[in-house]
């Protein structure tokens, strides 16, 4: 009886961890998918948007400003940094090949990382967050961290707001349409520059929001902090189906579920190989659904 109760409790807590982690991945994956769907670009500098947003929090904290200021600043920094990236790097490359864009985004990623190293420090910097995030809430038999609750709630709200924007507003509908068929929307009179700028701004804001929770979990920032989240987001996008916005969100949650489950179930001796198991499962998913979970199998037209 006790064992069952403990196992059930454990499962619930793992599920909440998976949802919190998944929602962070979902934000990042959605940003990647959004830019990919309008520009055909997998932006490997997306992780650096997380990094610069994290550093914005660090600098503001250093200047003595409270968390309530750091949060909007992180989101705004992500959005602005994304707009600058698009204007300075990607816009001049409009029409360039997929490979050119890909390599350029890698170069940009390295450039930003080294910029942070040179200007601030190559070392980790502490960003203490409100104590509140270390506390837990007791709900019946469950102990749930505030960090997980706030992460999940914020990400879900962000996804709902974004969905409403995309489905209900005229600007959003244009974006959604452009994500499905960019060329067709241009032929209907929608300006590609506006759509592309909006896609970058949204992807940057989502990266900034994700950065807040990643920093909260780590308590530090460092120049390379965006790489692992980017990799996870990229895997999530591939799982969901490259170019599908809802697929990216689903992919984020699926990946997190895999990781958390492995974390909880793998014996200690094989834990170091957790990533290998996780990626192995991704390979199996893609073996059965090569175009991703949410991409329709292309019908013969």
């Amino acid at each position: 009886m006790m064992v069952f109760a403990a196992a059930g409790q454990e499962a619930v807590q793992q599920a909440i961890n998976a949802l919190a982690l998944g929602s962070t991945y979902a934000l990042l994956a959605l940003g990647l998918a959004m830019v990919f769907s309008v520009l055909g670009l997998v932006n490997f500098a997306h992780g650096e948007l997380v990094a610069v947003s994290g550093y914005a929090m660090y600098l503001l904290h250093d200047a003595g400003l409270p968390f309530a200021v750091q949060v909007p600043a992180a989101i705004a920094t992500g959005a602005i940094a994304a707009l600058v990236m698009q204007r300075v790097v990607f816009r001049p490359l409009r029409g360039a090949s997929f490979i050119t864009l890909l390599i350029s985004s890698f170069a940009l990623s390295v450039l930003v990382q080294n910029g942070l190293r040179a200007i601030i420090s190559p070392r980790q910097q502490g960003v203490p967050l409100p104590d509140f995030f270390n506390e837990s809430v007791h709900l019946g038999p469950y102990v749930i961290g505030w960090l997980e609750i706030v992460t999940l709630a914020s990400c879900v709200i962000a996804l709902i707001v974004l969905t409403l924007f995309l489905r209900r507003s005229t600007q959003g509908l244009g974006m959604l349409a452009a994500a499905e068929d960019f060329q067709a929307t241009r032929l209907m009179g929608i300006s590609p520059n506006r759509v592309i700028a909006a896609a970058f701004a949204i992807s940057g804001a989502l990266a900034g929001l994700a950065a807040i929770f990643l920093v909260a979990r780590r308590g530090t920032v460092d120049p390379g902090m965006g790489f692992m989240p980017l990799l996870s987001a990229f895997i999530a996008v591939v799982i969901g189906g490259l170019g599908s916005l809802s697929g990216a969100v689903v992919g984020g949650f699926v990946l997190a579920a895999i990781e958390v489950t492995l974390d909880a179930t793998l014996p200690g001796s094989v834990q170091p190989f957790r990533e290998a198991f996780a990626l192995g499962i991704v390979v199996v998913i893609l073996y059965f659904r090569p175009e991703g979970l949410l991409t329709r199998v292309s019908e013969a037209k």
């Binding site: 489905r167 005229t170 509908l173 244009g174 959604l176 349409a177 068929d181 067709a184 929307t185 929608i190």
Partner: peptide, 14 residues
């Protein structure tokens, strides 16, 4: 070249 995943109404609305 319709926006496949959108409704007929939304396609025309765009």
């Amino acid at each position: 070249r319709l926006f496949d995943d959108m409704t007929v109404h939304d396609n025309v609305l765009v």
